[in-house]
Amino acid sequence: MTEEIIIAGFGGQGVLSMGKILAYSGVMQDQEVSWLPSYGPEMRGGTANVTVIVSDERISSPSITSFDTAIILNQQSMDKFEPTVKPGGVLLYDPNGISRPPERKDINIYKVQGARLAAEMGNTKIFNMIVLGAYLKVKPIVKLENVIQGLKKSLPERYHKLIPLNEDAITMGMKNVEVVQTV
């Protein structure tokens, strides 16, 4: 199994940490992983993206141009990454902040109201975990228990009390992912 993922959105949405938690979950179940961020003169409100690869085999190139899954969280990223999903692949997006929904006919498309659900749960910071939950419902490449282990590893000790909240957010995402089209 090799899953090549791009997660793209605004800086500050937790794009890079979502990728990191996913990568750590892979490590927890003995898989090979790579996490390659866009880095540069980026800031809150600017665009940010990260390429994550989780695989049973040694990973060749961490830098790739087409993906099994694209998780898209703003319009700029939709414009840039919708065309990079492999035919038959998955595009998951949050419709908040998307003015032009995806148009491809040859890919599986899902959406999750991440921003709205996070607001309803009273904490906008768990937005990324809701989206991660939605993704894991569509593609259960890592087990939930390993995600929790990954969270423990990647969060500093002082935030460990927030792990149950993150777990709730993942479950919320899993329950609320909507199918737009399947091929």
Binding site: V33, S34, W35, L36, P37, S63
Partner: peptide
């Protein structure tokens, strides 16, 4: 280089 420096792996 910047890629090896910035990326995370196991």
């Amino acid at each position: 280089d910047g890629l090896i420096g910035q990326m995370m792996e196991k």
